[in-house]
Design a protein around this nucleic acid. Structure first.
Length: 465
RNA sequence: GCUCCCUUCGUCUAGCGGUUAGGACGCGGCCCUCUCAAGGCUGAAACACGAGUUCGAUUCUCGUAGGGAGCGCCA
């Protein structure tokens, strides 16, 4: 049997980071087993579904590289099929029309809660013979009322549900559109989904969907219910915790593989290993090793992983992302070194591409945020001599390379009888406006000879006497 | 309220009856060092609680407590 999994978001907003984790595990499962991964857009809620949300989902999946083999399927394009199968269930007696009003249902639930019962539809229309004039009915599925339903969950193990706890769920609304449960089951059945990997908020829905599947004559898929991702405080992950839209992570300068790696390790592990390439993830992923408990989203760990990826990725591949960040910062690439050179110099000391762009600002424009206390501390009268000598020596270097620059600086420091640091740090402050940058020779090489001279001379001119 | 799920350092986790309870992020210290990083070494830090099963429970069972989800003509 070929494994076939799916990811089925509803386009009512951006793609949530928790949804991405669900998609990732589903995708990994399919890839690991050499199967197929299907994308389905659950847009039956026409009120809340938007094309913008569909686009955002597709864009996010594409950015992450979670490519699908089939789809995207749209539920709104399959209305005839739902109606066909609904009629079939009605015909077979597996479903029946229910004429209860919303008010009536609400009162019923309130009464049951008051009695300490699990609120559920009591089946009062089950045996109804005649329609209620003027009321367009919903279609309810006749759920078995006795026995137990067992979900052999790939993540949780065996979970038992008493059928008596289940009620007759609505499968077609009074306007003739299918409800979520019906759409899911029909689509999974029609597309031959073999493994349903989804959030554990659906665990309680599973037995009811299984009965529906049986009635429709589809084969039951295997289920794997993934635990939720919580915010750092243990509450449901939401906007108040920071970014929850994946594309915000792209914009913040995170790398797609790093995000995937982080998300994979949230709930899944393979011994002590922390870093997994895409291929390793696919090869090693095992849904049986997925934790059943919820985990908290930790930006600190994501940052660490992103830095690891920054350090080990090919600078050429990172360059477009940095260019985007630099442009967004309003910098003109023509005014400074190529992006690749900046990445090589900065990737060991940054967590995101956004950080690199921020740190490299001085390479493309005059330093804007000068550190006054650093200037007061390092650009003192005593450095006038060394800096002037350095300008002279740097003018004589054979080539503007870090090696020649380093040699010149070492010579000047020795000549002035000061340590390298006593020269390096003032130079750094003079050319970058701050105290932090890559090794000073690399910094000057990146900056270029002309800018270095301009800024050193300017600094010397402003030195206190 | 009812049903279902979950519970190892602050966080992510390893563990699958006998371990000095391991690793990672973060945090502290030391080393390296022109700054910041990176790197190396190192320190503090956990089995929610109570019964039971067993020669022996972090591990199995049952309770308790705490957390979560579901209970819609939302998905």
């Amino acid at each position: 049997m070929t494994v076939k999994t799916r990811f089925a978001p509803s386009p009512t907003g951006y793609l949530h980071i928790g949804g991405v984790r669900t998609a990732l595990f589903s995708w990994l499962y399919a890839r690991h087993h050499g199967g197929q991964f299907v994308l389905r857009i659950e847009d039956t809620d026409r009120e809340r579904s938007t094309q913008a949300a569909v686009d955002a989902i597709l864009e996010a999946m594409n950015w992450l590289g979670l490519e699908h083999d089939e789809g995207p399927y749209y539920q709104t394009a399959r209305m005839d099929r739902y109606r066909e199968l609904a009629a079939q269930l009605l015909e077979a007696g597996s479903a029946y029309h229910c004429y209860c009003s919303r008010d009536e249902l609400e009162q019923m639930r309130a009464a049951q809660m008051a009695r300490g019962e699990n609120p559920r539809y009591d089946g009062r229309c089950r045996e109804r013979q005649s329609p209620v004039p003027g009321v367009s009915p919903v279609l309810r599925f006749r759920t078995p009322q006795e026995g137990v339903t067992i979900v052999d969950d790939l993540v949780r193990g065996r979970v038992e549900f008493q059928n008596s706890e289940l009620d007759d769920l609505i499968i077609m609304r009074s306007d003739g559109s299918p409800t979520f449960h019906f759409g899911v089951v029909v689509d999974d059945g029609d597309t031959g989904i073999t493994h349903v990997i989804r959030g554990d908020d659906h665990l309680n829905n599973t037995p009811r969907q299984m009965h529906l599947i049986d009635a429709l004559g589809f084969a039951r898929p295997a289920y794997g219910h993934l635990p939720m991702i919580l915010g750092p405080d243990g509450a449901k992950l939401s906007k108040r915790h920071g970014a929850v839209n994946v594309l915000e992570y792209r914009d913040a300068g995170y790398l797609p593989d790093a995000v995937l790696n982080y998300l994979a390790r949230l709930g899944w592990s393979h011994g002590d290993q922390e870093l997994f390439s895409r291929e390793e993830m696919i090869r090693l992923f095992d849904i049986a090793a997925v934790n059943a408990s919820a985990s908290r989203f930790d930006t600190g760990k994501l940052n660490w992983i992103n830095q690891q990826y920054l350090r080990s990725s090919n600078p050429e591949e990172l360059a477009p992302g940095l260019v985007m960040q630099l442009e967004r910062a309003g910098l003109d690439l023509r005014n400074g070194p190529p992006a690749v050179a900046v990445i090589e110099a900065y990737r060991e000391r940054a967590t995101t591409l956004h950080d690199i762009a921020g740190s490299a600002h001085y390479l493309y424009a005059e330093p804007v945020q000068v550190d006054i206390s650093a200037i007061n501390k390092h650009l003192t009268a005593t450095v006038a001599g060394p800096l002037s000598l350095l300008v002279k020596r740097l003018a004589e270097v054979a080539a503007w390379t870090r090696a020649d620059i380093h040699a010149a600086m070492t010579a000047v420091a020795a000549e002035c009888g000061i340590g390298f640091g006593k020269l390096g740090q003032p130079v750094r402050v003079a050319v970058t406006g701050g105290t932090v940058s890559p090794p000073i020779d690399v910094t000057l090489e990146l900056l270029g000879q002309k800018k270095t001279f301009d800024r050193l001379k300017q600094a010397i001119a402003r030195l206190p006497s």
